[in-house]
Design a protein around this nucleic acid. Structure first.
Length: 895
RNA sequence: GCGAAGGUGGCGGAACUGGUAGACGCACUGGAUUUAGGUUCCAGCGCCUUACGGCGUGAGGGUUCGAGUCCCUCCUUUCGCACCA
C-alpha cells in the first residue's frame, strides 16, 4: 500500500527494537513475503537460489547458525532489491548420532527429542527476521523424505553403483558395538574405556571412486565458482596419481597348498623409475601374506595384533610411530630377480591400492627412516645433478621428481624420470606383470551404519530354512514397498542397534520366495540425507517422484553457504549424488552448487578461575568484567558473580567445555535481531573467524540508535514538502557531502557484490556520519540532499537491519515496500570534483601532497610537484633523475 | 603424518589492479551535558623522539622508483583427514 508522503502521525520517539521488529515481522507474515514462486513475473532478473547448509537440530540455535543464516539473509535481501526471484529455504538434518546419545542420557526416544528440538529452533529462527520460505521445509527423518534415499539406493544397486563388501570399523570389545571415530578417545571406547579394536564387517558402499565419477568430480571443479582452497582440498582428496601397478612374484602357499594371490604381490607406485632401488616390501597388517606368516610366528602375530589396536581414523594411524616386522617371506624382484624381504608395516593402509608398498629408502622419506630404524639396505638409483648422496641424513632432493636421472639401474641408466617410468612400465607389461595405472586416493563411500536413528537400508536377508534349501541372500525391498519405515519409539541403550531387538521391524517375508526372512538393520550414513535435501526444497510435497519439474527451475543452486569443515566430505558426496541423479535422468545439470561461500567460525575469549576443589572452573565471558590500563589494554579480569580475579585464557571456538558460548537468544532479547545481525556482519568478513564481543554488540546497537534518532530529527523538515534537487547549484558544503555519500554508495556496491559484508556496513556507518553533518531544516537543497541520503542509507542498510529500515522507510513516507525497493546506485555526476589531492614521494618516501585540478595533465602534475615546498625541501637542490606519475594518485621524484 | 588457510595498533578489522598502512567500529584518555551511574556530544589515540625526524603489516632475505600486497626460507595459529555433523 502506498503511504502518503506528508505525514501527520508522530514518529515513535525512542528506538525500541522489540516493537520495531514485531511490527516489521507482522507485516512480512501478513503478505507472506518470502514465499518463492517459480517464474514469478514480479522479478525481471530471473531466479536466484541461495541456501545454507541445513542445521542439525541439536536443541538450541548455535551462534554459528545465526551467522550463517544472516549471511544468507543479507544476500537474499540484496538480490531481491536487485530484481531477482530469490529462494531461501530451511530444513533439518534430523538423523544422526547425537539424538541417540541424548536418548541414552535422558531415556527419551530420538524421534521425540528431535521433533521437540526442531520446534524450539524454528521458533528461535523466527525472531531473527530471516527471509525463509517455510512452505518448503523438510526434515531428513520424515518417511516422505528418506523414502527417496531408499529409492536411490535401489537404483544404484541396479546400476552396480551400490555394492556390498567388508569394511574396517572401530569395535568396542566390552559393549560389543561399533564406534564412530568421535566415540574413540585416545584409542579407547568413550563409554567403556576399553582399547578399541579394528574389526571387519560387511557393509554397503557407493562407487564414488569409479574412474568415471572420480575423473568427473576432479575435472568439473574447474567449472565451479568456489573458493580456490576448497577446490584444492577436493583435488587433493580425490588424489589422482598416474603410476604403475605391478607384481613381485612369489611361491608362497596357504595351508591348503594354493598359491597366495596367484603368486603375485601387487604394489602401486608413482616412482617406477626407482624400482631398481627396492630393498624391502611392506604389507598392511590385514594383508593375506601377513595373516599367513603370523600363523606360525607368535611374535609376528602379536605385532599384527598390536597394529590392529586403536581406532581406524587416519590421523591416528598416520601419526603413530612407523614400525615393522619381517614376515620371513620373500618375493622376487620382477626386473632383477633378487629376493626381496616382505615386512609388515603398521603404516601401510589396506584400503589404499593393494595394501602393499615397495620400499625404496633412498628416494622416499618414509622408507628412508624405516630402513634406518631396521638397518635395511639403502641403494641410490637416482642422480640429481651429481649431488653427493649419503645415507647418514635425508635430503629433500632425494625425492626430486623433475631433475632425476637413473643410475645403478642397468639398462635404464641415464634415463630421466618420466622416460624411465615409461621404459620400466613397458618392460613390466611385456612380462605380463604390470601396467600403467591411474590410481585415486579417494575411497568408495561406505554408507552402512550399525545405528538406529537413520534411513533403513532397504534390504531383506533371506537365509533359507534351517537344514533346507539355501535362501535368496540379500534381496532388495521391492520399490512398491517403500518406504521401509523406521519405528520412532525405540530407545537405544548403548549396546548395539535397538533395531536388532525389535521383532516388528526385524521379521519379514522374503520378497522373492515368501519365506521368513530378516530385515537389514543397518541404516544409512547421514551424509546421504545431506547429499540432496537442497533439491527436495525445490519439489516440496512431491509424492510421485524424488524431484519434479520445479527442481529444474531452481537448480543448480546459485549460492551455497556453510562451514569450511564441510569443504571435502559433504560437498564431495553431494556432487557425486547429483551426478548419479543425472545419470538416472532425474536432473539435467552436472554440478549442484555453482558458487560456494564457507563462513568462518564464531570464537570467543575464555576465562577461568580455580574452584573450591582446586580444579579449573571456566567462566562465561558474559560473567566477566575486564580491567584496562590507561592505554586500553586489558590487564586483568574479575568475575561478576563473586568479584574474584579470573585468568584470561585464549580465544577459542565456542564450546560447552570452555563455557565460552554465547546464547544468540539472549543477545536478541537484550539488543534486538537487527543489532545482532549488524554486529556479526560488520565485525569480520564472512569467510573469516568472528570474535564475539559484547562491547562490539553495543557499538552496533549505538549505530542503529543513531540512525533512528537522525531519521527522527529530519522527519519534520522532510514532511514540509518536496522540491527538485538543484544538483548543479549546491553550495560547496552540500556538494562535498553529496560527493562523499555517493562515493560510499559506489564502494559499498563494489563490496556487497563481492560478499564483503563487513565493509558494506562500514560504508553505511560512514553514510550516517556524513549525513549527520547535514540538517534537512537548513535549506530546501539540504532537505532534498537529506531525503536522497536517507533513502540511500535505508536501502543500503536494509539487508543487514531489515526491521528498523522497514519501519523508518514507511514512517518517513518513502514510496512502496522497502523489501522490493530499488537497490541504491551512485550518481556519477555527484562524484565529480574540480580539484584532487595527490601524494608526493621523494625516493619512495611520502613527503607531502599537492592539490591540483582533476583534469591536470601529466606534465602539469610533474611541474606542480617539483614546484611544491615539500619537494624543494627534500630535493635540496638536486634534480630528479626520474619522475613517476601515477595519475590521480601520486608523484614519486627519484634522485 | 598428509592436505588447506591465516598472521596488520590495546582489540575486531580496512587498504580496489604493486602506489597516502591502520578506513569504520570497539576499548582507552581528556573535556562538555547529567544530582549520580548510564546515555549523548566534542577532541585525542601505531611505536620511539622535546623537536627535526626515525621505525613500523609474524621473522629473515630478494625483486621494484615504490612491497601488507610479488618471489624464496623459516616460525606460528586455525581447519579437515573418510563412522561427529
Amino acid at each position: 500500500m502506498r503511504r502518503p508522503l506528508l505525514l501527520t502521525e508522530p514518529m515513535q520517539e525512542k528506538y525500541n527494537p522489540a516493537e520495531v521488529e514485531r511490527q516489521a515481522q507482522a507485516h512480512w507474515t501478513a503478505i507472506d513475503a518470502y514465499r518463492a514462486v517459480e517464474n514469478d513475473a514480479r522479478f525481471p532478473k530471473g531466479k536466484y537460489y541461495a541456501c545454507s547448509m541445513l542445521p542439525y537440530p541439536s536443541g538450541k540455535l548455535h551462534i554459528n547458525h545465526v551467522r550463517n543464516y544472516t549471511i544468507n539473509d543479507v544476500m537474499y535481501r540484496y538480490l531481491r532489491m536487485q530484481g531477482y526471484n530469490v529462494l531461501m529455504p530451511m530444513g533439518w538434518d534430523a538423523f544422526g548420532l547425537p539424538a541417540e546419545n541424548a536418548a541414552m542420557a535422558n531415556q527419551v526416544a530420538p524421534a521425540k527429542w528431535t521433533y521437540d528440538n526442531i520446534a524450539y529452533m524454528k521458533k528461535q529462527m523466527s525472531v531473527m527476521g530471516l527471509a525463509i520460505d517455510w512452505s518448503r521445509e523438510m526434515a531428513a527423518c520424515k518417511p516422505e523424505y528418506y523414502k527417496w534415499n531408499q529409492w536411490m539406493f535401489l537404483k544404484m544397486l541396479e546400476k552396480g553403483i551400490a555394492y556390498r563388501k567388508t569394511q574396517v570399523v572401530n569395535w568396542d570389545p566390552i559393549d560389543m558395538t561399533v564406534l564412530a571415530n568421535e566415540q574413540v578417545v585416545d584409542g579407547k571406547g568413550w563409554r567403556t574405556g576399553a582399547v578399541v579394536e579394528k574389526r571387519e564387517i560387511p557393509g554397503y558402499y557407493l562407487a564414488i571412486s569409479q574412474p568415471k565419477y572420480a575423473e568427473e568430480l576432479l575435472g568439473d571443479l574447474d567449472k565451479l565458482g568456489w573458493p580456490e582452497n576448497v577446490k584444492t582440498m577436493q583435488r587433493n582428496w580425490i588424489g589422482k596419481s598416474v603410476g604403475v601397478r605391478f607384481a613381485f612374484t612369489h611361491d608362497i602357499k596357504d595351508p591348503e597348498g594354493h598359491l597366495v594371490q596367484d603368486g603375485k604381490l601387487y604394489v602401486f607406485t608413482t616412482r617406477a623409475d626407482t624400482i631398481m632401488g627396492v630393498t624391502f616390501m611392506a604389507v598392511a597388517p590385514e594383508h593375506p601374506l601377513a595373516t599367513l606368516a603370523a600363523a606360525n610366528d607368535a611374535k609376528l602375530a602379536a605385532f599384527i595384533e598390536e597394529a590392529k589396536r586403536g581406532g581406524v581414523a587416519e590421523a591416528d594411524v598416520a601419526t603413530r610411530d612407523k614400525e615393522g616386522m619381517p614376515t620371513g617371506l620373500f618375493a622376487i624382484h620382477p626386473l632383477t630377480g633378487a629376493q626381496i624381504a616382505i615386512w609388515v608395516g603398521n603404516y601401510v593402509l589396506m584400503s589404499y591400492g593393494d595394501g602393499a608398498v615397495m620400499g625404496v629408502p633412498a628416494h622416499d622419506e618414509r622408507d628412508f627412516s624405516f630402513a634406518k630404524k631396521y638397518q635395511l639396505p639403502i641403494k641410490q638409483v637416482i642422480d640429481v645433478k651429481g649431488q653427493p648422496f649419503s645415507i647418514e641424513a635425508w635430503q629433500p632432493w632425494y625425492e626430486d621428481k623433475e631433475n632425476g636421472v637413473c643410475m645403478q639401474s642397468g639398462k635404464y641408466d641415464g634415463l630421466p624420470t618420466l622416460k624411465a617410468v615409461d621404459a620400466i612400465a613397458a618392460d613390466l607389461a611385456a612380462m605380463g606383470l604390470g601396467e600403467k595405472k591411474i590410481q585415486f586416493r579417494l575411497r568408495d563411500w561406505g554408507i552402512s551404519r550399525q545405528r538406529y536413528w537413520g534411513t533403513p537400508i532397504p534390504i531383506i536377508h533371506c537365509s533359507g530354512a534351517e537344514g533346507g534349501a539355501p535362501g535368496c541372500g540379500a534381496v532388495p525391498v521391492p520399490e512398491k514397498d517403500l518406504p521401509v519405515v523406521l519405528p520412532e519409539d525405540l530407545v537405544p541403550d548403548g549396546s548395539g542397534n535397538p533395531l536388532n531387538k525389535d521383532a516388528r521391524f526385524l521379521n519379514v517375508k522374503c520378497p522373492k520366495c515368501g519365506k521368513d526372512a530378516k530385515r537389514e538393520t543397518d541404516t544409512m550414513d547421514t551424509f546421504v540425507d545431506s547429499a540432496w535435501y537442497y533439491m527436495r526444497y525445490c519439489s516440496p510435497g512431491s509424492t510421485e517422484a524424488m524431484v519434479d519439474a520445479r527442481n529444474d527451475y531452481w537448480m543448480p543452486m546459485d549460492q551455497y553457504i556453510g562451514g569450511i569443515e564441510h569443504a571435502v566430505l559433504h560437498l564431495l558426496y553431494a556432487r557425486f549424488w547429483t551426478k548419479v541423479m543425472r545419470d538416472l535422468g532425474l536432473v539435467k545439470f552436472d554440478e549442484p552448487f555453482t558458487n560456494l561461500l564457507c563462513q568462518g567460525m564464531v570464537v570467543c575469549e575464555t576465562f577461568y578461575g580455580e574452584g573450591a576443589d582446586g580444579k579449573t572452573v571456566w567462566i562465561n565471558p558474559a560473567d566477566v568484567d575486564l580491567v584496562f590500563d590507561d592505554k586500553g589494554r586489558a590487564i586483568s579480569a574479575k568475575s561478576k558473580l563473586d568479584g574474584q580475579p579470573v585468568v584470561i585464557g585464549g580465544t577459542e571456538k565456542m564450546s560447552k567445555s570452555k563455557n565460552n558460548g554465547v546464547d544468540p537468544q539472549a543477545i536478541i532479547n537484550a539488543y534486538g535481531a537487527d543489532t545482532a545481525r549488524v554486529f556479526m556482519m560488520n565485525t569480520a568478513p564472512p569467510e573469516q573467524m568472528l570474535e564475539w564481543s559484547e562491547d562490539g554488540v553495543k557499538g552496533a546497537s549505538r549505530f542503529l540508535r543513531r540512525v533512528w534518532v537522525y531519521a527522527h530529527a529530519q522527519h519534520g523538515a522532510l514532511a514540509a514538502g518536496i522540491s527538485p534537487l538543484n544538483a548543479a547549484k549546491l553550495d560547496d558544503q552540500l556538494a562535498k557531502a553529496r560527493r562523499e555519500l555517493h562515493g560510499f554508495i559506489r564502494d559499498a556496491n563494489r563490496d556487497i557484490a563481492k560478499i564483503q559484508y563487513n565493509t558494506v556496513v562500514s560504508f553505511a556507518i560512514k553514510v550516517l556520519n556524513t549525513l549527520e553533518g547535514v540538517q534537512a531544516s537548513a535549506s530546501a537543497d539540504a532537505r532534498e540532499a537529506v531525503r536522497e541520503g536517507l533513502s540511500m542509507l535505508l536501502r543500503l542498510l536494509n539487508p543487514f537491519a531489515p526491521h528498523i529500515t522497514h519501519v523508518l522507510w514507511n514512517e518517513l513516507g518513502y514510496h512502496g515496500d522497502l523489501l522490493d525497493a530499488q537497490w541504491p546506485v551512485e550518481d556519477a555526476k555527484a562524484l565529480q570534483a574540480d580539484t584532487i589531492e595527490i601524494m608526493l614521494q621523494v625516493n619512495g618516501k611520502l613527503r607531502g601532497s599537492i592539490s591540483i585540478a582533476a583534469t591536470a595533465t601529466r606534465e602539469a602534475v610533474e611541474q606542480a610537484a617539483l614546484a611544491s615546498d615539500a619537494a624543494q625541501r627534500h630535493l635540496a637542490g638536486a634534480t630528479p633523475k626520474k619522475v613517476i606519475v601515477v595519475p590521480g594518485r601520486l608523484v614519486n621524484l627519484v634522485v
